[in-house]
């Protein structure tokens, strides 16, 4: 009886998934391997090959942003997980606060700061340092990624760290571990599930973003997301190449996620030991 109900309960989402995930994916697959006349071809894949340098650049920037997020989020998440419950709630709310505002607006706001006549440059000039070109640089794009996706690194780390009992840290100290050894032998191995999901949640949207590069990267800054957008919606309209590029990106993301999900705690422990 319960099983039957559970089956029905999943129904609405299954319909949703078929409409908005499965069918679009099949369409991408179809467009990627057909030409304008609907005939099978590898031609699109070959044209998509031109975007490999863009793809590499996207992966590289997303990787930098992910590493920065991890380095900032890990100590922060740990320190809030050690605070009393009421303070923990306050900090988690502060982390989530920017997420209540629209993603586009947030990125726009960041662009205002970075512009040649933006707030940062005005301040820099007034204290005599002079203007710095920030818009259109990799710096601005990486900051944009970190700014937008940092909460997605903090939250999974925080939620796994609240489960690490303080007595584990104390007993490691008790057995002779200094702070660094506690970090590498206890905290990091026990946080692996949070690290893996944090990396996934930051890397995947960062590698495929086009809004951040568009708003902060200026006109010339091109990431793989921009390439796909331009082909599907924009001026270099070509649904078939666009689909092929998407497909390549998707395969790379899936491979990355598979690699991450195979990492388990013991392997990390062995590597660190």
């Amino acid at each position: 009886m319960i099983n039957l109900k559970a089956k029905w309960a999943a129904g609405p989402y299954i319909v949703w998934m078929i409409l908005f995930t499965i069918i679009p994916m099949l369409m991408i697959l179809y467009y990627a391997f057909t030409d304008n006349n609907g005939a099978f071809t590898f031609e699109n894949m070959v044209s998509a090959w031109d975007y490999v340098p863009t793809l590499i650049r996207s992966i590289w920037l997303a990787l930098i942003a992910t590493v920065i997020c991890l380095i900032m989020a890990f100590p922060f998440a740990y320190s809030i997980s050690r605070k009393p419950m009421s303070k923990q709630k306050m900090f988690v709310m502060l982390v989530m606060l920017p997420m209540w505002m629209n993603f586009l607006l947030r990125t726009h706001a960041l662009a205002q700061l970075f512009e040649d006549n933006g707030i940062i440059n005005t301040v820099l000039q007034s204290i005599g340092i002079g203007r710095i070109q920030m818009m259109g640089t990799e710096f601005a794009v990486v900051v944009g990624m970190v700014y937008n996706f940092l909460p997605f690194m903090i939250l999974p780390l925080y939620s796994i760290m609240t489960k690490i009992d303080q007595s584990l840290v104390e007993s490691a100290h008790d057995l002779g571990a200094n702070n660094i050894q506690v970090l590498f032998k206890i905290l990091i191995p026990l946080s692996v599930p949070g690290i893996v999901s944090g990396i996934t949640m930051v890397f995947v949207p960062a590698v495929s973003t086009f809004v951040i590069s568009k708003f902060l990267g200026g006109t010339d800054f091109y990431l793989i997301g921009d390439a796909i957008e331009a082909q599907i919606l924009g001026n270099s309209y070509n649904l078939h190449t666009g689909s092929a590029t998407s497909l390549i990106l998707m395969v790379i993301v899936i491979i990355t996620m598979l690699i991450f999900s195979r990492i388990d705690t013991e392997e990390v422990e062995e590597t660190l030991a």
């Binding site: 007595s167 584990l168 104390e170 007993s171 026990l190 013991e266 422990e269």
Partner: peptide, 10 residues
């Protein structure tokens, strides 16, 4: 320790 505090990853 009272709650054993064993390292579950080992």
């Amino acid at each position: 320790f009272q709650k054993y505090a064993l390292f579950t990853h080992l």
